[in-house]
Structures are given as structure tokens and as C-alpha cells.
Design a protein around this nucleic acid. Sequence first.
RNA 1: GCGGGAGUGGUGUAACGGCAGCCACGCCAGACUUAGGAUCUGGUGCCUUCGGGCGUGGGGGUUCGAGUCCCCCCUCCCGCACCA
Length: 714
Amino acid sequence: MLSNEEVTADGRSERGNFPVFRRPLTQWMMRITAYADRLIDDLDRLDWTESLKQMQRNWIGRSTGARIGFSVGDETVEVFTTRPDTLFGATYMVLAPEHPLVDALTADAWPDGTDPRWTGGAATPAEAVSAYQRQASRRSELDRQTEGRDKTGVWLGVTAVNPVNGRELPVFIADYVLTGYGTGAIMAVPGEDTRDWEFSEVFDLPVVRTVQPPADFDGGAYTGAGPMINSSNEEISLDGLDKATAIATITEWLIEHGHGEATTTYKLRDWLFSRQRYWGEPFPIVYDENGLPVAVPESMLPVLLPEVDDYSPKTFDDDDADSAPEPPLSRATEWTTVELDLGDGPKKYRRETNTMPNWAGSCWYYLRYLDPSDDEQMVDPELERYWLGPREDGDVGGVDLYVGGVEHAVLHLLYARFWHKVLHDLGYVSSEEPFRRLVNQGYISAFAYTDERGFYVPAAEVVEKDGRFFFEGNPVNREYGKIGKSLKNMVTPDEMIGAYGADTFRVYEMSTGPLEQSRPWETKAVVGSQRLLQRIWRVVIDEQTGAVRATDVEPDEDTLRVLHRTIAGVRDGVTTLRFNIAIARITELTNHLTSVYGAETPVPRSVAEPLVLLVAPLAPHIAEEMWARLGHDESSAWHPFPVADERWLVDDTVEVAVQVNGKVRAQVSVPADADTAALEAAARADERIAGYLDGATVRRVVAVPGRLVNFVLG
RNA sequence: GCGGGAGUGGUGUAACGGCAGCCACGCCAGACUUAGGAUCUGGUGCCUUCGGGCGUGGGGGUUCGAGUCCCCCCUCCCGCACCA
């Protein structure tokens, strides 16, 4: 049993990639749809990436439009449309094959002269309908994709009446109308809808344009903007109006005449919350002798899982679409049958045997982290306010920074927002959102290689020669993709930690690029990070003796400048989550120290200690070891992180570029605080620049202190 | 099709609108070594007549100045996809 969000585009399970079948069952659902508007609207108040917000918006799929009733015989069929303005262009109507009114509407016989394309070759409408329904139900999501989008359908043998102009509209069923969205029925407007146009081509249905296409338009359906045409009856005319005005006008008319109403629909479905697994929170629900559910009272909570011999869920063949799912708990009969006094005396009850999905825990664990040992309440409200509460009016609150993969976009990240809002509404939390700021880390991917037959070969055994790649002497093609067994490009953290250590592994992963970016793993490049850590070690510790090399000598000014620039750079890199920048700055400092203080010269302690502290968040193990050897009893984590001294961030003199017409022609050295006049004077004094300016008209001089001088010649 | 993101050396990447390529991998050379897949030093965008010229996917624009801002196009990646 899975929720919609857990089913992939190919109709398989997100975890395990098993085939998924649809079956009607009675299950517990969460009314997430009641929160659809707030889940969309509050996205604007979150510090999340635009793409992730957009994924949630699309998944919730809010559309505003109108519900319109069409009479078909004695029945009224409601359709949903986002384009009520095109109502005059409706020329037929389509119901989903599973629409509940289909049987009631279907005519007894085809009228004389029925187009053979409309009957599906059946003798009667009822036969055509049942044959088509059977065919549609067999078509899985995957089939629909692979079979393309050729429009199919059959006529019910009846017509509906367009309320706005009395036009008779033939009523079809077709699988391009989905039963789960809107009302499961549409008014078809081939003139302004691409899918309706395609259907009208197959079934030879009339087209009435109601939006004037541009003069040079020669396509089918016109979905762009333009003035309304062909849209009037005795009471109302939309002709000449723009889309927004036309929608407002016709909607008002429909309401006035009782033909419809303005409405909003969502793609989001309610959330199926029952699973047939042992390992999950049991529902605090029992069923009485009439089979009606009763909530277990708070005094009897929590309901704990029973000890069982067999935890495994019942397994089925991959192609077994008919078996009923069977929860493992249903076999624990001594647990499922209980006698409880729920207020009206002891009675026998049967426990709910489904369990909750993993999301039940991930939806609130971050709240529990605030108050993990509290056995009275989920979280102390004061602690929640302190850590997650809103900081000013309109602030949604939530966790300061949440780092996670984008694969949770419409799963965990949507579910947790929903739960959090429910908890907020119930008064348990002051924050309106669980995660104030969200950063998606990129995937680490890797190169993979295929031989000439197209089979993947073990990436670790491929060798490069002159820019080409070989496996066992044979040339192979290089591809790029997710790390995994199927591409034979697996690299496990354990292997890397075994070969290089956990610190090197961390530093390498952080140094290859920005956190948010996906980037390739390259095992041969890991040595770079290992060399860096080894160089840092040798700066602080004598490799031969293990003694500390740092002494109380004074660093030279140059070293102080590099140190403080490094501190500023690392702070910047760490706070902006660009760890690659922090590591580059640390590398610069290390390279500087290696070249200035060779193997023999003692390194100033006042430089070595900040270096170790800067390294500590990135490579904690080696940093702690160095910190201890430097004579500290406590972890470096308790020591304040270094702060850059402004004094050493500015140079006395700076090199500025001198440009002539935007091209760099010279470098001049000037005092760091030289003003524009001094800059220009220094630039003019340069021999080369003087040569360029000689005899030329200087039209303009742009001097930016500390940066450059640009002479614009006329 | 719709939505989101990205194109910079051989590679991963870096650059408040101000000297394109920090740092690293790789490669080249040298030093030290019995040895090197160790360490250290130097070099490494392309072209060059050695003056310099050209370079951030392509084309235009704004600006004294554009990888960065604006417009058009191309390519790639990700998400959704018959959602009325």
C-alpha cells in the first residue's frame, strides 16, 4: 500500500521499484487536501529554492475556474473548466470512462446514421461502453505513456445541452479525461484546447473558435490570448472582451442562471496513511462488535506493537494484481482481540492491524529533538518557541537550516509541513512551518563506462590513456550518472574511509564544489585532500619525532595578512555553505606556511592554533589530535572560532591595474588609501601608460580606489 | 508540451559590474632520494612574427568597463506530464 507520492512515473514503487496495482480498499487517510491552499500560499514565506517550491505547487496543482452543469436527458453532468470564457465554443462533451453517470446516460440504441467511428464497432451503445471501460481499466499508467496519446473513445448515443446557447453536444467517454481530477467530465472546446482538438480530428467533430487567433496563425487549437468572438446569446455577449473579463462575465451569468459556480480544484489527493507492515506505529483505533472504529482514549496510549514471531509482510508475485494485502499484525490474534472498558463497561474490541508509514515519524522528529527526554509532552512549548518560534510578525518560524535531498520534495517536505500546520492549529507549536530555510545538496555522481555491446564494465578497472578509456585493453565509452550497482560505478564511503580516512573523505566531498551542485566523484582526485591534511599535519607536528613544531615566535606581517585573510575567507565559506571556498583558503594558508617555514623553522603558535581551529569543522579527527598535542585538554569545539583582525585584512600598498580603453596595459603600486587623483597621477607616471596617452585625447578617466584606473581615449 | 536550473582551461571549480581561471586533480620540468604512486620547487587557457592578439555555449544590447545586468537563440540536466 502506497500513497500517490510514493508511486513513480513508471507506475512503480519509489522504494524498491516494485510494480504497483490499483485496488479499492477501506483505509485510513489524512485530509491533507484541507490544507492545500495554505500549503501553496505559505511557500512564498519560506527561504527555499524556487525549483522546490515550484515542485510543491505543481504537485498540489491548484486551478481556479468554474463548475458548469450540462443537462443530459433527466440528468445533469457537472464539468470543471479553467476556461469558462470559451463556453460558446463547446461542441461536445467527454466523461471519464469510470464516471458514475455513464451507465445511466447510455442510450439503448444508436440513432440512424451514426458515424461508425463513434461506435467502436459495437452493436449498441451499452456494448461499446462496457468494451471501452474494460479496455481503459486494463491500460496501466505505463501503457498510457508508451502507447502515446492517440485519442480514443466512444459515443454514449446521447447529447447534452450547452446552457449558454442550447447547442446539442454529443457525449463521449474517453480515457484522456481522468476520473480523479475535477469532476471527471469536461466540456470539449477544440478551438482552444489542444487535446480536444486532437479528439475532434479523430471523431470529425465541429470546431467553433471563440478566441480570435492572430492573422498568421495556422495551427489547430489556439491557446494564446486574443479578443473573444462568436460568443453571444440574447442576454449576454463576450465578444471583444479579453480573457479575464470574459471569465468574470460568464461566471457571473452562470451563477445568476443556476448553471454553475466559481470553484477551485487541486491535483493533490488525500493522503493514504495505512501500510501493511509490522514496523510502523499502530493506529490507536479499535473496532467494536458492529465493526465501527473507536479511538483508544489517551489514558491507554501509547498502543505498542506486539511481540511476534514473524515480522514479514505477505509477499506476492510481481504480476499478481488481484490478491488482498494482508498486514502482518493480523496474524497476532492474541493482540488484535482485546477487552477494554471505553466508558460503557468491558467489551470486546478488535484492533486496527494496519500500521502507519515511515512518514509518521519523520513528520515530527525535529520537534522531539528539542525536548528528547520529556515523557509528559511531545515538546515543551517554551522550548519550541525558543528554537522554532516566529522572530517577528509574519515570520513562519521553523528550523533555521534544513539540508536534504530534493527527492523529498513532494514526500517528507510536504508531509511535515502539513503535520506542522495541524499541530500549529491545535496549539501545540507556535511556528507555522517546520523548516524556515532549506538547502538541497547536490548528488555525488560518477562516470560509468560501457563496452561496444553497450554493457557496463566495472568503472574502477577502467584505465585512461591519451584521453581515451580502456577496460581489459578494449576501448569503452564514458557516461555519467548516479553512483550505483547497475552502472557498475559504485564507490562506498567505507572503502574511501578505509583507504584515506574519514577526514580526507569529508574534505574531498566538500572541496569539489558548492553544496547544492551535483558533481562527479573522482577517486584519483581524493589524494589532493589527503595531501592537504598531511601538509597541515607537518606544519604543526614534526613527522619524525611527533613533537609539536609550533613555538612562541612572532609571525611576520606577511603571514599575519595571509592568516587573517584565511580566517575571513573560511568564515565566509562556512556561513554561506560554500565549503569548497573555505578549503581553498585553508590550502592557501598551508601553502604559505610550508614555503615560509620549511621543515627546520619553527612555526608560530599564534598561527598554528587558528589554523587547527579553522580545520576542525571540516576534518575534526585530525584537528582534535593536533589540538591535543598543542597542549589543550578540552576539545577544540569549546574554543571560540577565530575572528579576523581588520587591521591585517588591508594591505599598505596595493597593485592596481591601469587600463586604456578597457584593456589592461600596466600595473602600478600605490598606497592602499590612495584617492582617485593620486591613482590617476600614479597611472600617468607609468612609462608604458605615458606612451599610450602621448598625443591622444583623454576623453574620460575612471579611477576606482583599490581596483583600477581606466583611461578612455577619444 | 509546461515549469525549474546550468553552460568558464584536459577535469572539478573560483571571480562586490573592475586584472577571467583562486584552490585542487591531471600533465611537464627540476631538486632530494637505493627507490617513489612520497616530499619539496617551478611551469601549465589558446594563438603568436614575442610587439601582441584571442578567449567564459551563439548573437545582439546597456556600460568607461560584462563570465556577472537586459533581449533573442542553441545545448544539457532536473521535475511534472492527456490535470480540462
